[in-house]
Structure formats: C-alpha cells, structure tokens
Design a binder for these strands. Structure first.
Lengths: 207, 207, 207, 207
DNA sequence: CATGAATGAGGCTTCATTCAT
DNA sequence: GATGAATGAAGCCTCATTCAT
C-alpha cells in the first residue's frame, strides 16, 4: 500500500513524505481492522502486521492505541466535511439537495461505520474523542440544512409557520429524523429509507 | 426458581427474600455498572463487589459475563414489551397515541441505554444476543404503529396515497425517523425531538 | 444406588448401617469417576451428584477430597490382599501358582487402575498415601512369591545357585519383571504378557 | 531459530547467548519444577520466576502450559533416541549389549521421569501428547532388541524354539519385563534390578 | 528511524471447602 | 445428619506498552 521512494531523495532532506505515507498506511490498516473485528479484538500486533511494520513503529506515530483511533476519526471527519460541501455545489430541486447533503454526511457515516458489525464499539465515547473532532462537521451540516430550509421558505415551497416550526427547529428535526436511517441493514435500504424520510418530512413542511 | 413469599410472612422473618432476589440484585448491580463504565471496563470483580456477593457467586447464577449481559438484555426487552402494550390501552387522539407508543419503546431504550455514555458498547452485536431477544419487541412495536396508521387512514385523517406510501412503508418510515431521536443529549431534548418528528411526519401524511 | 432403610430400624440405635452404606456409595461413585475422568477433572460436585447426595454430605464422611481418595486406595488394598491369599489356596503346578498369585495382584491393579486412561494420575504420590496402605499387600505378595520359589528349590525344580540368585533376589527379580506387564494395552495382552514373563523367568531359574 | 555464536565473540559481549537460549532456559526450569512439584502444582508464574522471565514471556515461546509440557516431552524423546543408538555402537558380549540398550532407554526414562515423585502425573495421557512423540523411540528400541535376539540365535547362544518363542514374542517379553525395573526406588536399585531381569530372562532363552 | 522481545497488570473462570438452616 | 448457597484463593492467558539494540 505504502510505496517506498528511495531514489528521488537527493539529499537527506525529505523524509516527511515517506513518513507521512507510513502514517497513512497505518491508519488505513487500523481502520480496516477496526471495522472488521472491532476495537477490542484488534490488537496492536494485528495492526502492525497488517501495516507491514513492527509493533514498536506504531508508537513512533501514535502515542497509544486510543490516539491511533482518534487519528482515524479525524480523517473521517475531514472526508465528511469535504463531501458535505461538495453536495451543495450543484444546482438541483430542493428535495434533491436535501437528499444530497444528507447522503453526503449520513451515507458516509453509514458506509464507514454502521456497515461494520462493530459500529457500536467504534462509536463508544469511551474512546474520548476530543469534543471538537466532529463538531465542525455537525455545525456545517446543520447550517447547510438550515440554509436549504430557508431557501424553501423564501421560494414559498415550505411553510414553517403552518407547521409551527422555526428554521432552527425544523432543521434540527429533519436532521435528527434522518439519523434514524442509519439503522438500515444494507446500503440499498439505507438509501431508500433516507429518501422516504426526506420526502415525508418535507411534505410535512410544505406550504 | 425460588418462590417469593411476601404474604405469608407472619413475623419479620423473611430472609428468603434476599436469597431469592440475589439474581436480581446481581442483574441490577451489573446493569448499573455497565451503563456507567461500559462492558469492558466493568469486571466481574466490580459486579460482585457492587452486588455484595463473592465473585464465585456470580457464576452460580450466570455461566459467564456474557450470559449475565444477556440476562440484562432479556429483562429490558420484557420491560419494553410491557410498556409498549400499555401505551395503546388509553384512548387518545392519533398523534398522542403515536407519541405514546414511540415513547414507550424509544424512551425506554433511551433511558436505559442511550443515556449511558457507553450506549454504543452495550449495543455491540459482539455480544451475540440471541436473535430473538428483541425480535418480539420490534415486531410488536411495528405492528402497533402500522395499526395506528391504518386507523388514521380509515378515519380519513391520513392520506397515504397522496404521499405515495403504503401502510407498511409509512410505518417503516415513521418508525425509522423516530429512531433518530435517540441521538438526543438529555431526556428533555429526547422528548421534544421525538414530538417534533412525530408531528412533522404525520403532517407529511395528512390528507 | 444406596437403598434407604427406614423401616427395619426399631429404636433409633442402628444408624451405622445406613451411614456405612452411604460411605460406600460415595466411595464407589468417586472411584468410578476417578477412573473415567481422572482425579483433577472429577469435582466434588460430580461425586456428590453421582452418589446422590449433597456436596456438604461428602464432608461428613471424608475430611477432604484427598482423604476420599485415600479411602478408595485402602479399599483396593484390602481387596488385593484377599485375592492374593486366595490365589495360593488351591494346589497346582509351580508355574500356575506363580501366575495365579501374580494375576491376583497385578491383574487386580491392572483392572482397577491401569485400564483407566488416567492410571498415571491415580498413582501420583502427590496423593500422599499413608506409607503403609499398600505395604502389607506388597509384603504379603513378595513373601508368597519367595515361598513359591523356595518350594521350587526344595522340589529340585529350580536351581538358584546356578543362576547366581538367592531366594530373596530371585523373588524380587521375578516380581519386578512381572510389573512390566502392566504396560499392556488391554486385558488379553496383559494376561499373555504376564504368562510369557513368568514362563521365561522361571525357565531362567530351572535346574 | 536463533543462531548460537560462541566463537566470534571478541570481547565479553555475548548477551545474545541468553536471549537465544531463553527457550531452553524455560524448558529446563519447567522440567525441573514439573519433576519436583508435578504438573498441577507448578504454575506458569512459578516457571516464569524460575526461568527469570516474566509470565508473558513464556507465551512468546509456548502457546500454553500444555504446549510447554509437550516441548519437554519432545526434548526427552530426542535425547533417548540418541542414547539408544549410541548404546549399540560399541562391540560387547550379548548380555552387556542388552543391558546397554535397555539402560539407554529405561535408564533415561528412570532418571528423568520416575526419579520424580510425580512421575505418574508426568505420564498422564491427559496431556494428549501427539501420538508420534515417543513412537519412533519405541520402534527403534524394539527393533534393536529384536536384532540382538536374532544375533544370539544366529550365534547359537539363544534357543527360542526350546522356549516356545519367536523373535518377536521374545523381544516383546524381554522388553516388557525390563519395564518393571522402573519401579525401583533409587538408581542403584534400578541398575541392579535391570541387570537381574536381563540375566534371568536371557538364561530363560539360552540354548 | 525501526525493531520485536520482554513485560506485568488485569481479566475471566473453577472448585474445594464452609456454614447457616 | 443433610443440604447447597456462598466463598475466595488460585490459575491460565492477553495485550498495550516499553526499551535496548
């Protein structure tokens, strides 16, 4: 997975590249094992073997098993943020945009976490994730959802007043309802359920 | 196994009580510790101490740590089933009944599981719960939701056709959306979120 | 297994009988289990169940698991002693008598101990058998063998002098050689091997 | 696995030695303890302490207590095989050769196993030794005994026909009779008893 | 930087023995 | 005498982490 590059290093001044590679190699290997076997059942020994390095090497890049886990979480958060922001780039009908943003976030989580038989363990807050790891992701997500709702209100498509919601409470409710889709057993069901939830809730807010 | 005898105790001699309830004492202690510290971090030693018995005593009632965990799950399932069935006993407007049933199930889960910082671990399928432990609960729950929707359709309050749903898909969607409420941070938020989700989705199905 | 006899006890003065029965019931059950599963793998729980009594009852008859084991050994020693003494009662040719005595002792040991897959454990001196338990058996055995050899010398059938033996050393050697037969895998092999050893060693002492 | 390097150590720096021999150090320590205290009463903790390593280290070399035991057995089997093969190298009278081969095998067993007060436990088939561990040893032993008998027959020294034996049955009988010597209480007695058995049985087969 | 042998605390489970009833 | 629930010491094994090379 990690490609060694000895040739192109003229002096001795560029070990960052290889190092960075090794760091990612480890993260990838660990994430893969965590998803397949869970946090507990994946030993540092396993990770080292899968990454093709010695056990001690892991501790050169991560202070502990827990910190390695956190690094994975941070990587996932970054990917989700990017996906969410890309989802509103294209111009589409309101419902499609809702669906797109939600799939960008929830779908990513689903594919990375919930599709694993050990989803629960991976989400256990025992792994004291620094509070801010997913905070930015959530904030961005909710603000975009709120913006879309506002857009619907402005265009007259939605009528929060009739339903007794504010933009904020509507955004919170839609978001939360959508979370339920993560219970899905497979990706097809996930997509269908998410679409149904978006459709039914938007109907509830329609003018 | 041990028969409870509260009535026929003439004097104050009911030492049988403690012995009979030992199994429950252990379950309670274990559940408490699991919620507070998670499955992994709760040792059999801890449970024994909390239950006020010796370590070996635990094994008189449960063959292993895992089996003790399963006993807890079974107890919770039984309580939920009872709560769900009680929730439809009283006559109320449709939305209230939806809310009642959902709170009976999801609220129970929330209070028992998700309110714990270790909810995730407690739900980890690693603990291979016999497939049928929560099956009856889920089946009952979904069938009652479906019945309520049918009732709404019959009374003309709901119009699935306009929304493009069948009774089944509507029931599934409502149920799933409601699951999202379990993400709530505290019980007040849980109740409010659940109410919002029920309101907004029912509106989406209104005639 | 143990028959209760409540009727025939006129007063209250004869509990020795029943007690003694229970003691033997326990010994029988324990011996059976020890032979089948070995000392370690047989728990006091198992013995109690097999004997049809409660665990605590075992301790009314035997101070410890070890003492129960010793009681079994003592019982076996007594049976062997009886068998050995019976073996010389009948009049027969010298070789037959040798064979008879040896089979009485070694055969008994073989059937009771070595035929068990856990023979080794049952003979582990960890079970500190009081030194005298099998002492009398051995003494009787050797003295009878010595007597038979003397008889052979007196009748001119054996010639120890030519072979360079005394009665004692000859008795010891025959006895020891015969012990080897206990390596046999089944009783048929045991008998054949024992017969061969007796035949060949007696030939070695013939005039 | 680890290569020993005694020669090329210029200074006094041979720490490699200790590391390389750790496996053997553990085996030696464990064998010693097993002989003195038996398998059961020797804990992994004890072995680690005796070998001067940590408990976990034992598991770097042996997967379980049982496997450590098997490694000891294998080592003993190898040593016995070597001793047996060396015993027929030198040219000697028939009886001396018998004695030599038997002492090589039985004497080794006696010194290693039966001299321990826990011989029995060490031989308990509970420790499911792979069937072939001592198979080669036994096969070699018996085949050599048979060869020696054949040699005696060829030279006219032995006369199996008169005694009613074949080479095979004679070999089996001698071998088995010799096993009895292992009952000896100390090494002097063992040697004397073995010599007596060999002498008397060979006399039984003489022409 | 990299290695991997070594560590040892900690966890689950068993079972001989006790004792209140 | 008889019971069996309760005890708790002791045992085997795992694995995150360290450190000398």
């Amino acid at each position: 997975m990690a490609v060694k590059q000895r040739m192109a290093a003229p002096k001795g001044d560029m070990p960052k590249q290889a190092s960075s590679d090794k760091r990612e190699t480890i993260i990838d290997a660990a994430f893969d094992l965590f998803r397949h076997y869970g946090y507990r059942r994946t030993s540092m020994e396993d990770i080292a073997r899968a990454a093709g390095v010695a056990k001690g090497t892991l501790y050169l890049y991560f202070a502990s098993k827990e910190e390695l886990f956190e690094a994975i979480a941070r990587m996932l958060a970054a990917r989700m943020l990017k996906a969410i922001q890309e989802a509103i780039a294209c111009d589409q009908p309101l419902e499609e945009q809702f669906l797109g943003v939600m799939d960008a976030k929830l779908g990513a989580v689903w594919r990375w976490i919930y599709s694993s038989p050990h989803a629960a363990e991976l989400l256990d807050p025992q792994h004291q994730l620094p509070d801010d790891v997913f905070e930015e992701v959530d904030a961005t997500f909710r603000s975009i959802i709120a913006k879309l709702i506002q857009k619907g209100v402005d265009s007259g498509e939605l009528d929060l007043h009739a339903a007794g919601f504010t933009v904020e409470s509507a955004a919170a409710t839609l978001t939360t309802a959508a979370y339920g889709a993560e219970k899905a057993a497979d990706e097809a069901e996930f997509r269908k359920t998410l679409a149904n939830i978006v459709r039914i809730t938007l109907r509830g807010l329609r003018a």
